[in-house]
Structures are given as structure tokens and as C-alpha cells.
Design a binder for these strands. Structure first.
Lengths: 335, 335
DNA sequence: TTTGATTATGGTATCGATACCATGCTTGAA
DNA sequence: TTCAAGCATGGTATCGATACCATAATCAAA
């Protein structure tokens, strides 16, 4: 049709022989327009292939119907399910999600936030919980809801949705201690940029400390990869050097645990007889068959859905301030 | 600062004692403004914490500096790296990415597209290659670049960036045939909504057909999960029933291959002696240690980067029309 | 019939930026 | 000295919608 030009509301109005405002009403509050005109307008819309311009709408109504999200990486599959939940819930309510990734670089966060704010979003989602002074100031000065997700911060900027990594790891360590394990190791979670992993490690340390057990921690920092399957496999290389009596290993993620399990099978280390293995959750929602891994199930998608609800109804969410969705320790065959 | 109100360009202009247009120029073409005024304006911006309103800018310049992307799911980690590449490249050029997921429902695609177009993007990215008539018509009528990614379509709507799943799988099958395997199975890729997996399966079938070998295909459709680790593990259950002489298995993804490998180790099936295992790639970019899996390395992130470039310079990209980034058959220890 | 309430509809200002044109000033060449 | 060219700057219209107010039409009650 139009080359380089968009059809405008005026075009529709002219064709239907009504005022532009009537077209606007047909789209937003159709019950306020009489039947015959509504029909004419709708026909005109279809005939011209009219697509409303939300940019203009946002300007005049000062409601953009966009929410912004800042994530460290999209590739991190843990976030992915959250983003899916967020995006689909918002879309169902007629909102769009503007996504920006920082690549774990906190200097970028402020830039990303500014870029986001330039679109005048109706609310924002942050996936990190420690912010620079600039970011904090910027957010505090806004009148739109800000939701921090995943790791629950001690002092939320506005609204927080997530669960406690610390507590979950603590519980998992207790589970291993209670089932009689004496030498419990922890693998991963030491990356300087991986705040969630670090909290898990801290939960583990706290539990062992409370039980009077010496911790056994390990990572392959030098290799750069701290969360892949290979980390779990490589763990065996040095594990026995540190403590040859290790009889349980908590992993910072399910992926790492899968690596440990594969390697254990290859070396004929019996699981859970010789070695208990625990993961940390939700990289694949269900893994009932095959691996039978004990893990912490994390409400990734629920976090997305709950954040969306918080953005859509900030008053209700602010009443709670912190929305803790919990986690589930799922015991299976590996412990 | 302002409660519920945003600082506008006018506010900055008043404080700096210049016209609004000068503020605009300081932000976009600073070299056209004299040194002293530029300083005054920049001070005013900093003092007021001014964040420009791109919504308004988009309206008057009819350039939104937004690109839209429609993906089936964000959770699919394969897309994730592409989205990362796309998003970061665009952001570096001052553009933003508006993301919408369809949840594999092609009815939703047209809705999603309309919602995207309502934001007047400067270009769009599509991850599926078969579109409804409505979608095709809508896109053809646009004057903005449209990039189809991953699977290369036979007749691109506008620009296509990706590689051939068919050819890659064909090559992998040839590799197995050439290395002397006689009974080669294929696992997965039969989901009605998984077009990429289907093309891989077809490539496999074509190669076996050309070699005069009967195919052995398997899937656990009934379980709903056709791409997880458990698929690979479950494969063993029925594999021997179909063909007890199976000596090679091509998997629709690396994840499935990991499942196969783990299960093989557990059952003391020697890899690659008794069974060759091949994955299909890039769910984790490098897995050098531990698993040593032969796989097809897929240029996930590059696709994102190349798409971003195509969007930013559509004329150059249109000259090529189809940008084939290829793939890499990486032979490792499992074949 | 008049009045007030209610519904349907349109006109006009406005949102916050950019585009375009006009202006005044400074130069250097004629 | 005069004029053209170039630069810095500002004024005003404009982008495409919505908000707000005004008006016309309809209907029930007085």
C-alpha cells in the first residue's frame, strides 16, 4: 500500500466519515460508540490495514504501555524462563517488554537504565541487586514502579520478587548433613560477577559452620568457566587432592551437577553410595528420568509472572514490598 | 526531584538560557554548537538529571531507534545467544530491542507483529520462516527492513541471516557414514513446532537415503519433551528394540547428546567403540573438557550480530539478500 | 413544553521532541 | 564599502495520537 508512509488515524476517520476521536474510541472504549459508526470505523481500519501508532499515543497520554528490563545476560537460561513469564504476562495485558542486557558489567547498568528511561516506560525490572549510586538515585527519583528480581535484596529500592539463595543452599547443606554426610564439598559460585552463586556458597558455608564442619570448596576460576558441565567434570581432578574423604558435593547449578554425575559414572564412583550429588535449580524445569538429581527447584517462571503482576498493580505489590516465592528442595536418587 | 513529572528539554533550555533547539543539538550534533553554550547546556542537563524523551523524538523525526524481534521462546537457550548478540550490537549503535515471544503459536505471530508495528520500529527480526498470509502481507507492505534469522528460507521476505540445518545434518550423517558406521540413528526433531529440528532430521534422512541406508529414527513425543537431557537417556530404552545393531546416534541437540552419553557410560556402552554419538550445537559454546562431544557448531551469536548489522544498514544487506554464516562440524572423541 | 440527565460526537490544545526556515553575525573577497 | 558565504541560533509548524471541554441529540421526569 503506502510506500514509506503509515496509515494514520485521520485516514481512517476520513474514510469512515467520522472524527478522529471516534476512531480512537472504537479502539479503546468501543462500548461508547454507536453500533453503525463502530462498524464503519472497523471496516475502514481493515480496509486500510491501519496499525495504531503507540508512540504518539504514549506522548499524549503519558502512558507508554512499555516496561523495561535490565538483565545481565539473556543467554543465562535461568533468566530466560523468567523473561518468558514476564513477557507473556505483560503482553496478555497489552504491554510490551523492552529488554537490555549489561553483560555483567555494572558500569553499563546506568547507561542501560538511561536508555530505557528515554522510552518513558511505565515501570522497570532489574535483575541485579547491588547498584551504583547513580542508578539508585535515578530510580528513587522516578515515580514509576521498579522491581528487583531473583535475589531478594536486604533493602529493596521499591518492590522485590524472588527467593533466598542463601536460605536454599543452607537447607540443602542441612539435608546432606542430616542424611549422614561427613565431608561436604561445594563447587562453583565464586565468580566475582555471580552474586547469586556467591549467596549459595555463603549459605553452604553458614550451614557447615553451624554444624562445626570444615568446608571444602572448589572452583576452576582459572578456566573462566564456572557454571558449565565441564566444571562438574573437572571437579574430580582436584577434589580428592583437597579432601579424599569427600562424600557429598553441592553444586552451584544443575549443569555443574550433571557434569559431576557423568564423570562419577565414568569413574565408577557410586552415587549416592560413595558420593551424594546435589544441584541447584531449574535450568531444565523437570528432569525426572535419566539423572534423578536432587536439587533446589527455583520458581523462575513464577518470578516473571509475579513481577509482571507487580508492575501492573504496583500499589498492591508495594503493600508487601518483598514477595518471597520460596523454593523447593526436591530429594531424588542422588542423595 | 520532580515527583511524577519528567524534566523536559524546555526546562534544560531555560536553565541554560538557550533555545530548546540548541539543547537538541548538543545531544545529537554537539559539534554544531559553540563551546560556551555547549558547556552551559551540559551543566544544566547534569544538574536537572535530564533524560531525553525518545518517544517524542521518534514522533517528530519518524525514526524510533527501536528494532522489534519476534521469537518463539526466550527460554530456548539457542536463541538466547543470538538475542544477546543482537541486543548488544544494537545498543552499541544507540538502538533498543523490543522483544516479543509467541510461544510457538503461529496464530500469535500476527498479533505480536501488530503490537510491534504499533511502536513504529525501524526494522524487525523474525525467527520463524513460515508465516501466515496476514503476516506476509503486512511485512511486504512495510518500508522497513525485515530480517528472518536462523533457518534460511527458500524465498526470503526481505533479508535472511542464518545457516542450513539441513546441510549441516546431512554433513554430519556423511561424517558418520564415512567413518564406517552402518546403523545410524537420529533422535528428536519431530516436534510439529520445531522447524529447525525437522530440517535436521530431513538432512539426516537425505544423507542416509543417498547412501542406501535405512534410517532409524526415534523420539519420545508422548512425553512432550523432545530436546532435554532426559530424551537422550530415554533413547536407550527403546533404541535396541528398533535396531539392536545401532552403532551411531545423531542427536537433534547437544543436550540430548549429553543425555545419551551419560546413559552410555552408565551402561558401559563404549563410546565411540560401540556407539558413536554426535550432537548439534552450541547450547554451550565450548565443551572441550569432560564430554568431548562431536557436534555441529552453530554461529548463534554471529547470527545476532549479523542481523543487527543488516538492520542498521539494510541496503548493504539487501544486496546479498541471504547471508549464510555456515556451521562447523567439530569432530571430537565421541565419533 | 420545559428541564435536567445522559449519551454520542467533534473541535482544539497538548504531549516533547525534531524539521525547516529565517535571522543576525562574522568573515573574506570583490 | 559592499556583498556573498558560512556559522550559530532561535521561532514555528509538525509528527499522530489523547485529554478536555463543548455541543447536539435523545429521553424521562416535572
Amino acid at each position: 500500500m503506502g510506500k514509506g508512509k503509515w496509515v494514520t488515524m485521520k485516514d481512517v476517520a476520513d474514510l469512515a466519515n467520522v472524527g478522529t476521536i471516534t476512531v480512537s474510541r472504537v479502539l479503546r472504549t468501543p462500548e461508547k460508540v454507536s453500533e453503525p459508526k463502530r462498524q464503519r470505523v472497523q471496516n475502514a481500519i481493515a480496509e486500510l490495514g491501519y496499525v495504531p501508532d503507540n508512540t504518539a499515543g504514549a506522548l499524549s497520554s503519558s502512558k507508554s504501555r512499555i516496561f523495561g528490563a535490565i538483565v545481565s545476560t539473556i543467554s543465562d537460561s535461568v533468566f530466560a524462563s523468567t523473561l518468558d513469564g514476564l513477557s507473556s504476562t505483560l503482553r496478555a495485558a497489552g504491554y510490551e517488554l523492552l529488554l537490555t542486557s549489561t553483560g555483567y558489567d555494572s558500569d553499563v547498568e546506568e547507561d542501560a537504565l538511561r536508555a530505557l528511561l528515554a522510552r518513558r516506560p511505565d515501570g522497570i525490572v532489574l535483575t541485579s541487586t547491588s547498584h551504583s549510586a547513580g542508578v539508585t538515585k535515578l530510580i528513587k527519583s522516578l515515580s514509576i514502579p521498579a522491581v528487583e528480581i531473583w535475589q531478594l535484596p536486604s533493602a529493596p529500592l521499591d518492590i522485590a520478587v524472588g527467593f533466598s539463595n542463601f536460605q536454599a543452599a543452607y537447607d540443602m547443606a542441612r539435608h546432606l548433613i542430616d542424611s549422614g554426610r561427613k565431608n561436604i564439598a561445594f563447587v562453583g559460585g565464586d565468580g566475582p560477577r555471580d552474586a547469586r552463586g556467591r549467596r549459595r556458597r555463603e549459605g553452604y558455608l553458614a550451614a557447615l559452620n553451624a554444624a562445626g564442619m570444615p568446608p571444602i570448596t572448589w572452583s576452576n576460576k582459572e578456566q573462566g568457566a564456572v557454571s558449565g558441565i565441564e566444571t562438574g567434570a573437572a571437579f574430580f581432578e582436584s577434589c580428592l587432592n583437597i579432601n579424599p574423604h569427600t562424600d557429598a558435593v553441592m553444586c552451584v547449578s544443575d549443569m555443574v551437577a550433571v557434569g559431576v554425575l557423568c564423570e562419577a559414572r565414568r569413574r565408577n564412583v557410586e552415587v549416592p553410595g560413595d558420593l551424594a550429588v546435589a544441584g541447584f535449580g531449574g535450568f531444565e524445569v523437570s528432569m525426572p528420568s535419566g539423572l534423578d538429581l536432587t536439587t533446589i527447584e527455583v520458581p523462575g517462571k513464577d518470578i516473571g509472572v509475579a513481577s509482571a503482576k507487580a508492575l501492573l498493580d504496583p500499589e498492591a505489590a508495594r503493600a508487601k514490598k518483598v514477595i518471597d516465592l520460596g523454593y523447593k528442595l526436591v530429594q531424588r536418587g542422588t542423595t
